[in-house]
Design a protein around this nucleic acid. Structure first.
Lengths: 339, 339
DNA sequence: AACCAATATGCTCAGTTTGAGTATAAATAG
DNA sequence: CTATTTATACTCAAACTGAGCATATTGGTT
């Protein structure tokens, strides 16, 4: 076996918890083009260029029996967090996703994982920080109605990207993709196309990562003019995050994963707020209650929660046996109303 | 960067086409513990131990800009097939998934891909063969009613696996998992849990791969006694196939991927047969027609198909604009009737 | 020519699910 | 004591779904 086919394999984790009705991910700060494998978490030499990054750890082929065990091991070591629910997302292997490859570094593959944590287990973290995932993807949060950033920045910028197309056909193609991804031109907004949207913005050069990857040869002035849609991240970490959001939004429909983010007992409103936080859209309260109760997803405990402002709510727990009863127990999301 | 963290990365492809109402995958024959990287497709020295294998190719970090390009390249080189639709499935990295690791070989990671081909593009293939995927997973095909293999072989074997559990609690746990995965004990059969089922059978030692992986130290007599549930495959290739089936069955519900398997125009029965083949369950003809027509998935062409035995059917084509209209255009599958 | 087998297509109908809203109950704050 | 807030129960129409009947159009048989 020749050496040329060897690559370096790392694992990236989107570690998620929902606190104060916000989905938050664990992020580190680090230099974008600097040490990628923080064996000692050494701080970056050039603080001006620090960027948010997903936690990262190498696969140690000698030690780690499985990929998932590898992930659990270094997450524990780096952050002290003992992750529960873990799911593989996607393997990212484009050349130059790690910029040091350009300077002769090895080809770096990254396997993305999603981990769900209960709110109370987020104590540790070391240098890590919990940040709302909508800081990185602000156009995905429709809980307060259509995000203003869409009309104010995103749509005009996408429009001029369409104008910039080579010819009429290319422009038509761009228009088509944008309409479907962003629910424009009469198309509905599809909450699951998170990755499509991010990739389109990247392609259109509307996220800082795109400008960065096209080479730092441009003038500083030009770079400053580049739009800053959402908080940027290291490497392709925002793409990994977008993958995680897509996956999770899809999955809550047919698997009871939400409960991995909740304490053992909770009120129905708490549950609803978590689902809304993930889905990025508001839900009809009474219908949501009907869905989870009649759907057999939860069981009342008879106990009441401490006052949350109004009438006390009953505490519920996840009804595990639902798995035996229905093939796809989850919370279906309604289509967003047209505008 | 230390050398110990380097691994060998390969790509496995589940290349699928539906012909004669059967979903078929492209397979090679090769020695189970022999050369894993068929640079020259060299035939195996010990024909007695030949097993079916998924097409495989290495990632060449120097040449391949992206993983998908790598896949397309070696599939073209090896089989002459120019794949269209391609989708990444999962990355498999358990130690010893390639048995040569035991003898000091490098850690081998495999990234599984799913590719969908039109029926007419399956000419080439070289030494490769198209084989029905239900040869490998016969318990997944419910088109002719509940598969006999379930009652005849699978359920008794799973029952005795439950009996073999350490203690009552462990047995209870096994019972629970089996009921949910195989729709026993009142639970419904869930067509999407293909991977769950395969992994359970593997764990219970009911597929040949499990016997093989536990070491070839056992007597030949014992091995012969091992059940042969479905046609075995090389390494963990059947697991990859199970992942592909799971993914595809899930996806046809919300994305119009079926059309990747059909010619440009087709009759509604043809379309139905393909969906049935993938889902492994029969569908109600009139309702299916209503679903795809009212759902805006297809457009009539006005032309009629050559007689297929009865009244000629209208030819339809995929209605691409449906993507602009509905967020999740696909063919929802009904629950299978209880027994 | 009449009839049968096979497939295609149109339509009905009841049961369920879904989206939206009204009404009432039980707590706290002033 | 009243306004406010949250919880919970119930209603109603529209849409969707599962199941089946009925009719249409072909080729082959008698």
């Amino acid at each position: 076996m020749s050496d040329h086919s060897q690559v370096f394999v790392g694992l990236n984790a989107v570690i998620l918890a929902v606190t104060e009705e916000e989905p938050r991910i664990l992020t580190l700060r680090r230099g974008d083009h600097s040490v990628a494998f923080p064996e000692n978490q050494k701080p970056d030499p050039t603080p001006a260029e620090l960027v948010d990054a997903l936690p990262f750890g190498p696969l140690d082929p000698a030690r780690d029996r499985t990929l998932e065990l590898a992930l659990r091991a270094w997450v524990r070591e780096q952050t002290g967090i003992e992750v529960g629910y873990v799911e593989q997302l996607y393997t990212f292997g484009d050349r130059n996703r790690d910029p040091r490859e350009r300077e002769g570094g090895p080809r770096v593959l990254s396997i993305g994982y999603l981990s769900l944590c209960h709110e109370d287990s987020i104590a540790g973290g070391g240098q890590a920080r919990w940040r709302p995932w909508y800081d990185y993807l602000p156009w995905e949060d429709w809980r307060g109605g259509r995000p203003a950033i869409l009309e104010r920045h995103l749509e005009p910028a996408l429009d001029s990207w369409i104008q910039d197309a080579e010819d009429r056909r290319a422009a038509q193609l761009r228009r088509e993709r944008i309409d479907i991804a962003f629910g424009l031109g009469g198309a509905p907004w599809d909450g699951y196309r998170v990755l499509d949207r991010y990739e389109l913005l990247y392609e259109a050069g509307l996220v800082r990562e795109a400008v960065r990857d096209r080479g730092a040869t441009e003038a500083a002035g030009e770079e400053a003019a580049a739009p800053r849609l959402g908080r940027p991240m290291c490497f392709d970490h925002r793409r990994i995050l977008a993958t995680a959001v897509s996956r999770l939004r899809g999955k809550i429909k047919y698997r009871p994963v939400v409960f991995e983010l909740l304490p053992p007992t909770f009120t129905l409103l708490q549950l609803q707020r978590v689902v809304e936080a993930l889905a990025g859209q508001p839900l009809h309260k009474q219908n949501f209650r009907r869905l989870v109760e009649k759907g057999g997803l939860v069981d009342g405990t008879g106990k009441l929660s401490a006052g949350t402002g109004g009438r006390p709510a009953e505490l519920f727990r996840f009804r595990r046996v639902v798995l035996r009863e229905r093939p796809t127990p989850g919370v279906g999301l309604p289509a967003l109303p047209e505008h």
